[in-house]
Design a protein around this nucleic acid. Structure first.
Lengths: 227, 227
DNA sequence: TCGAGTGAGTGTACAGAGTACACTGTGCGC
DNA sequence: GCGCACAGTGTACTCTGTACACTCACTCGA
């Protein structure tokens, strides 16, 4: 009937997304230990006693890649028997979004390397991490369209072109410039700043920031974000 | 660094939804054992050695409530420390949809009672199951609008009014009859049967069934279901 | 300083989808 | 045969999505 079954262990793994001018990238760690020593894998590790799942994910990210204070959400729990050669180990996978510009990823303290790879061009991965990345990417593509999480990937001040490029890269299709601007500005969630971008070899574009406060107020009145 | 931490146990819990003429209902089990003996709780239990998560969820549903062959999907994993007085136990929650008409829920073999309660009027629940039901209900409300999962709650042959009532109950708002029919029929996913409902004291309504095959074909061509 | 290059910024016309709305028809039961 | 209850049906308007091209501002190099 109902007995304790302590043969299952619990890990968290994180799919951390970042974006540069041309690519959506994911953060991987080179494993130092068996199994899969030397292979690339998602940052993650075992949940510790007394620790919550999100807490464990944030700790692992901080320890292994030096990234803190980022958008992070639970993704899915992978528990197929056989997914880990060490035994029955389930992974509560999370996905996270960081501003590549802010977060210089440092090498992990224990000399394991951390590196960014384009989501479609990464080395073979340990465990079922390939599948986890797939699921995370589909979730991101779905969620970015009806929740304003894309801003988590951009610098706090950004141009409309950067924002458009973000959506084009994540959704993998091109968008019409005028329609995109019309729609995003009509939502009233962007604040036009008294500042323009710098260091570009052409007319400098206006900078904007996302109005978080306003978004939360609109949410309560039943507002629906949608790109 | 990376050591085994076998202090965490893993359970699965299921939020099973069913619908009758007027209410969306959830299936609960009266607990026979401590903790929370005598309280109502979601059907669920510990994952067994060698068992996958969905597999464990289906087994528990079959054992505790006699329901089999139903729509079932992973929902979220709850792992706050302290959510279970027995120690660190995470719950991989699932949600499921059944046709109340088909599934007579039998009492569980071990004499614990199983019963349906309206989603908004159930007794106090054990553990954090209140929160799990909340999350499941929000997921259902979101998902029912852009995936044809509502049909899992209806008999295989149904009238358009039944279908409309389903959406009205789940979404908690009324829909316009003509617009609803126009939209749902325009999708071309319903097959009109040569049959009408029986035993009603008024003109009998036409019966339809959902065309699963057709839906899958349309999906591949980029079709988007939406109510 | 002037010309070339690069991306910023802007409006309109059309098509399609969503929405609001009310009456007649049919079958049953009394 | 009459009343009740729900089945079934179409149109007009509004709003949203989409397609589409040129001028302007700024920098850099010759």
């Amino acid at each position: 009937m109902e007995g304790r079954a302590s043969t299952v262990d619990v890990t968290v793994d994180c799919v951390v997304f970042g974006i540069d001018e041309a690519h959506l990238k994911v953060l991987f760690i080179e494993r130092g230990l068996e199994p899969f020593a030397g292979a690339w894998a998602l940052p993650g590790g075992f949940v510790r006693p007394g620790e919550g799942l999100e807490q464990a994910a944030r700790r692992e990210l901080s320890e292994e890649a030096g990234v803190t204070e980022l958008f992070l959400e639970q993704l899915f729990t992978f528990g197929d028997p056989g997914r880990d050669p060490r035994g029955q180990i389930i992974s509560v996978a999370h996905y996270a979004l960081v501003r590549l510009s802010d977060h210089r990823v440092r090498a992990a303290t224990d000399a394991r390397q951390a590196a960014w790879f384009p989501v479609h061009e990464h080395p073979p991965l340990a465990f079922d991490h390939e599948e986890i990345v797939e699921v995370a990417y589909r979730r991101l593509q779905g969620k970015v369209r009806y929740q304003p999480i894309g801003f988590e990937l951009l610098p706090r001040k950004f141009t409309l072109s950067q924002l458009q490029r973000l959506y084009e890269i994540v959704l993998e299709r091109s968008l019409d410039k005028r329609n995109f601007r019309k729609k995003i500005l009509a939502m009233g969630l962007l604040v036009e700043l008294d500042e323009v971008e710098r260091g570009v070899a052409h007319r400098a574009a206006r900078l904007y920031r996302f109005d978080e406060r306003r978004y939360r107020r609109l949410l309560q009145r039943g507002f629906n974000f949608e790109i």
